Amino acid sequence: MARLVLMGSPAFALPTFEALAEEHEIAAVFTQPDKPAGRGLRPTPSPVKRWAEARGYLIFQPRSLRRDPQAVAALQALRPNVIVVVAYGLILPHEVLETPPYGCLNLHASLLPRYRGPAPIQAALLNGDAETGVTVIQMTEEVDAGPILAMEREPIYPDDTAETLGERLARRGARLMRETLRRWLAGEIVPQPQDPSQATYCPRITKADGEIDWRRPAVEIDRRIRAFTPWPGGFTFWNGRLLKIGRARPRLDLQAPPGRVIAVDAGAAVGTGHGVLELLEVQLEGKRMLPIRAFLNGHPDFLGATLGREHPAGAHAP
């Protein structure tokens, strides 16, 4: 049994933290500060904070470890053997990386050095990869660049979203981190350096990334919708209101002007730069997600409209 400090924020970290808590002593949990959320913008704890509170763990929420010497001192006073980091969201400075005798281990949701950065799951979906995976590294001051301790691959299915793929990677990562930590503490792993010439990087996702450009090919738009599910979602505009696309599928046997809504098999599809995107589920702003046929029953004027921000009045084809 080792004495651990856990660092993480989103639900992706929870399977790993659950697995480690079964075998090791948890000295404390570090997570992001509560963030405003919902219509009232009330401070909302991270999933990791809620998990730690339910188990009575000591919790720290510094806004920065590089600019908060008191938080670093408190961490050092805990005397952890290992720090385990999963999607924490803060940079660990040198004095933190050097604190535990067995170092800081990070679980990253890609096959490093591919997709270093904050959104590797979305990046794999956006690029149409056939597989991705999880990697455990020993952390260094360069983000996601430390030597590799273990790696496992995971297939990407045609209907995967960031949510479904993320759930599988979280479970796989939990198993991998638990076994890797055992072997690391036993001195059974020789770290393997990453090849920096093979490194690729993915940027942070913003809400604006979810807006659909109907001039792009249908296959690419479908990837973007799946990559941005559940957040920020793939969305467009109709009649000046936001319209979220819950599920869709590309069809290359049909064509229509980009953004134009056409009837397809008692449903609807939207023209793109190449092919059309057949809509399966949509959600109009302020309403619930509906199958496309149910949506058309209530909005028959949707057919023939042109979608997008440049058509706020819901322009129709002549």
Rank of each mutant, 00 (worst) to 15 (best):
L105I: 10
E22T: 13
G246C: 07
P312N: 10
Q138G: 12
A123G: 12
P80H: 05
V270H: 07
L307C: 00
A21D: 02
P232N: 08
F30V: 09
S110I: 14
A186Y: 05
F228V: 05
P69M: 03
L90R: 13
G173F: 05
N297S: 12
I221Q: 04
P257G: 06
L92C: 12
M289A: 06
T161S: 08
R39A: 15
A145S: 07
L296A: 02
D129Q: 08
L169R: 02
D195G: 13
G234L: 05
P258S: 06
R114D: 02
A150E: 01
I137A: 03
D129R: 05
L65T: 07
R153V: 08
W214I: 12
I59Y: 03
R204K: 14
V85W: 01
I91Y: 11
R3N: 12
G173K: 00
Q76Y: 06
H311D: 14
A256Q: 03
L149I: 11
L126E: 11
P118S: 03
A13P: 07
G246S: 04
R178A: 15
S197L: 14
F235M: 13
G304K: 03
D195L: 02
G240S: 13
P33S: 10
I148T: 05
L111W: 06
P158M: 03
H24N: 03
R175G: 14
R247I: 04
G308F: 00
G275Q: 00
Y88I: 07
R153E: 09
P258Q: 00
D144P: 07
P191E: 09
V86P: 08
I148W: 03
L169D: 00
L41P: 01
A317E: 13
T180C: 12
E18Y: 05
E53C: 08
P147L: 04
G173A: 07
P193K: 08
S110N: 06
P193C: 11
H299L: 01
P43G: 01
